[in-house]
C-alpha cells in the first residue's frame, strides 16, 4: 500500500537481521582471536609454524565429527554415536585391508560406506521406528562399540601392510615441511560441507526440518527420507574421521572412540549452533572445533595440569553459549 512510508522502518529491520548474522560469527571469531593472543603473549612459540600445524592437525578428527554432527543438530536432532561409529568404520576398513585383501583405495571407500551405513541406520531408527534421536544414536553407539571389539578380537588392527597409509594423514602436503595432509583433507571436506549446507537441498531441508518439521512435511517434502540422508551424511563424516584417526595411528584402536562425540557436539555448540535446530552455520562449527583444539593446546604448552584443562574447556563452553544467548536476546 503505502510503500514509501514503511520502507525506512523496514530497512532498519533488515539491517538488524543482517547484523545479527554477522555478529554471530564475529563473536566466536572474537573469542578465538582473543584466546590466541592471550596464549601468544604468555608463550610466544604458541604461534610458531610447527605449533600452528599441530593445532590444525589436532582439529582434524574432532572437526570432521563436528561437521557431520552439525547437520543433525540443524534438524533439531542429536547424534551421540559419531565417536564409536568413527572407530567402527576404521576397524572395519582395517579388517577389509588385512583379512579380506581389499586394495587400499577400496579399503578407504569401504570405511566411508560403513560410517554412512551406520548413519543411515540411525536415520531409519529416528524416522521409521520413531525413536528419539538421542536413544537411536545411543543404541548405535553401544552397538558399534561392541562390534568394534568383537570384529577386531579386542586387538588393534594395524595398517602396516599398506605402506603409505600413515602418510594419508601425516604426510606432508606438496612436500611442504610440517604441513600435514590431514589439514588439507579437513579444509577440503569443510568446504564441501559448507557447499552442501548452503547450496544444496540437504542443507536447506536440514534447517527447514529444524525450524518447523511439520510445516516442512505439509509442504510435500519427504521429511523422513531427508532425515535418513542427513544422518547418513553425519555417519559418512564419522567415516572421514575414522580414516584420519587410523592413519595417524597407523592402526585402528577398537577401544577408543567413546567421548569423542561430546567434544564434537561441544564444537558445534561453541560455534553457535542451537541444539533446538533450525539455525546455525558450518563456519561456526569449524571455528568451534578450532577453539577447542587451540585452547587445549595452549593450556598444555603452559603446562596447566590435565584436570584443570578439562575444567577450563567446560567454562569456555558455558561462556560461549551464554554470549550467544545474550546476543540473541539483544538483537
Amino acid at each position: 500500500m503505502i510503500k514509501g512510508s514503511i520502507s525506512p522502518k523496514m530497512n532498519n529491520k533488515m539491517n538488524k537481521s543482517l547484523r545479527r548474522d554477522i555478529s554471530h560469527i564475529a563473536i566466536i571469531l572474537g573469542i578465538f582471536v582473543l584466546m590466541i593472543l592471550f596464549f601468544f603473549i604468555l608463550k610466544p612459540n604458541y604461534l610458531s609454524y610447527d605449533n600452528i600445524m599441530t593445532i590444525l592437525l589436532a582439529t582434524c578428527v574432532n572437526g570432521l565429527l563436528a561437521l557431520g554432527v552439525s547437520f543433525v543438530i540443524f534438524t533439531g536432532g542429536i547424534d551421540i554415536s559419531v565417536g564409536c561409529v568413527m572407530t567402527f568404520s576404521s576397524v572395519m576398513s582395517g579388517i577389509a585391508l588385512t583379512k579380506w585383501g581389499f586394495s587400499l583405495p577400496l579399503t578407504i571407500v569401504f570405511g566411508f560406506l560403513v560410517g554412512a551405513f551406520c548413519g543411515a541406520v540411525n536415520g531409519f531408527g529416528v524416522t521409521k521406528m520413531f525413536l528419539p534421536p538421542f536413544i537411536a544414536t545411543m543404541a548405535m553407539q553401544m552397538i558399534t562399540k561392541g562390534l568394534s571389539l568383537v570384529v577386531s578380537g579386542i586387538k588393534p588392527v594395524y595398517f602396516t601392510s599398506a605402506p603409505g597409509y600413515q602418510n594419508i594423514a601425516t604426510g606432508n602436503f606438496l612436500g611442504i615441511q610440517g604441513f600435514y595432509n590431514a589439514i588439507i583433507i579437513l579444509i577440503v571436506i569443510a568446504v564441501i560441507a559448507y557447499i552442501i549446507f548452503s547450496k544444496t537441498l540437504i542443507g536447506r531441508f536440514a534447517l527447514a526440518i529444524g525450524s518447523n518439521e511439520e510445516a516442512t512435511r505439509l509442504s510435500g517434502v519427504k521429511v523422513d527420507n531427508w532425515k535418513i540422508a542427513i544422518y547418513s551424511l553425519c555417519g559418512l563424516f564419522a567415516g572421514f574421521g575414522g580414516l584420519i584417526m587410523s592413519s595417524r595411528l597407523n592402526s585402528a584402536q577398537p577401544q577408543l572412540g567413546a567421548g569423542y562425540e561430546l567434544e564434537a557436539i561441544a564444537a558445534a555448540v561453541i560455534g553457535g549452533n542451537s541444539l533446538n535446530g533450525g539455525e546455525g552455520s558450518i563456519v561456526g562449527t569449524i571455528i568451534g572445533a578450532l577453539i577447542i583444539s587451540s585452547l587445549t593446546n595452549g593450556l598444555r604448552i603452559m603446562s596447566v595440569s590435565t584436570e584443570l584443562q578439562s575444567a577450563i574447556v567446560g567454562v569456555v563452553l558455558a561462556l560461549a553459549v551464554y554470549f550467544d544467548k545474550m546476543r540473541r536476546k539483544n538483537a
Binding site: 536447506r204 534447517l207 527447514a208 518447523n212 511439520e214 510445516a215 505439509l218
Partner: peptide, 16 residues
Amino acid sequence: RFGLALGMNVDENISM
C-alpha cells in the same frame, strides 16, 4: 505451527 518455518527467510519459505 503448520505453514511456515518462522526462522527461515521469505525466499526459503516460498520455494519450500
